[in-house]
Design a protein around this nucleic acid. Structure first.
Lengths: 210, 210
DNA sequence: ACCTGAACACCGTTCAAGT
DNA sequence: ACCTGAACACCGTTCAAGT
């Protein structure tokens, strides 16, 4: 009769997520994960290819949560696409504040993570739906990229403590929300008339995207 | 008669910058730096406190270069603040493409870097000057933060290969530039009338900021 | 004064040996 | 089948010893 397994993949990923928030990526060591799940480091390799794969699983779980949060926020915001965009931006910001290290991992500029395309699409879908309504199908993708770039950029800078010139950061965020909502709604955009071609995609590695 | 020094701090920082672009932060090891400057790893500690300090020096040098690039782009763009913003965004994007790893380091969401305030101000000054003209003193800081967040976010996502839904990324960039220039110019911003107070600043650690 | 080899405390990862 | 200790190849960093 075989003894019951002493740990599991979900437990390992969970330990990784906790350690990530506690001590950053440096704190996410195989030994620390192993200790947290009550096992020795070599045993982890029964369920995970290695540290990089574990980090990818942590990122995937984070992105899955983010997609759910974002979907819920959009649903709760009602029919007005402007309100949905505002709600999306605020929901992502709250998510990032709640799990800063995980957010930083998923949206890190240099990471070589291969996030699952279906997760990316799930996270991006609500923004795209809103911008399609506001900017029209031709500009939906450009508008979604503009809005997402601003939101991710703002939140990333805020997490990094990059707003150091004083002023009210909450006010700057709301200013940005309104500026982007207005801009994406097209009233000030000197829109080109190029059709929004959805090509093959460059399929590069990278962080959460659209 | 003492023998001449076999290396120097600038040489070490230069080696660090090269290694960063060649192999990312993981490739920036003390041993690799030492080998590149023709010395053994322990000797580096004569000129640098440790690896983290070296990384901070690399980031500082990068930010210094970026500030110079940005200043030059603004100067060359002429008197129209809209043109200056367009030129700034494109200059930062070109800089990031030229040195992606260094850009990622300086603008990483989670980094614990303590960039020098004077470098940050130098890098931010041209944007602030342009937004002050476009949005007025009351909204200059909010507008600069909005524009910078979008630019950093877009470039970071592009570097990470995060635009995977097809379409033309260059077109998305230009769409974003025009959207932000228009938004920052205030035509669509439902501006609050709160005065732009430049308070003490939260003085947190973090990446390049404004 | 600068440089070095040796050493220490960590990593990630592999693997033969245990149960 | 899962787990482990021991080992290996790396790290960053310290320090006594060399010149």
């Amino acid at each position: 009769m075989p003894t019951p397994d002493r740990t599991s993949l979900p437990e390992i990923v969970g330990a990784g997520r906790e350690l990530l928030e506690l001590g950053g990526l440096d704190g996410l060591t195989m030994q620390a994960v192993a200790a947290r799940v009550g096992v020795r480091a070599p045993s982890l390799y029964k369920r995970v290819t290695g540290r990089e794969a574990l980090i990818a699983l942590v990122a995937d779980a984070t992105l899955r949560d983010l997609a759910a949060v974002v979907q819920r926020a959009a649903d709760a915001a009602g029919a007005d696409p402007r309100d949905r965009l505002r709600a999306l931006a605020r929901a992502v910001r709250a998510f990032a504040r709640d799990r800063p290290a995980a957010f930083g991992l998923v949206f890190a500029p240099g990471s070589e993570l291969r996030l699952a395309p279906e997760r990316l699409e799930a996270a991006a879908a609500p923004v795209l739906a809103a911008t399609a309504e506001l900017a029209g199908a031709d500009h939906a993708l450009d508008a979604a990229r503009t809005f997402t770039a601003w939101a991710n950029g703002f939140i990333g800078m805020e997490l990094a403590g990059a707003f150091r010139l004083g002023g009210d950061v909450d006010r700057a965020f709301e200013f940005g929300v309104e500026a982007l909502v207005g801009a994406v709604a097209g009233s000030t955009v000197a829109g080109s008339t190029v059709a929004g071609s959805a090509g093959a995609g460059s399929a590069g590695a990278g962080s959460a995207g659209i």
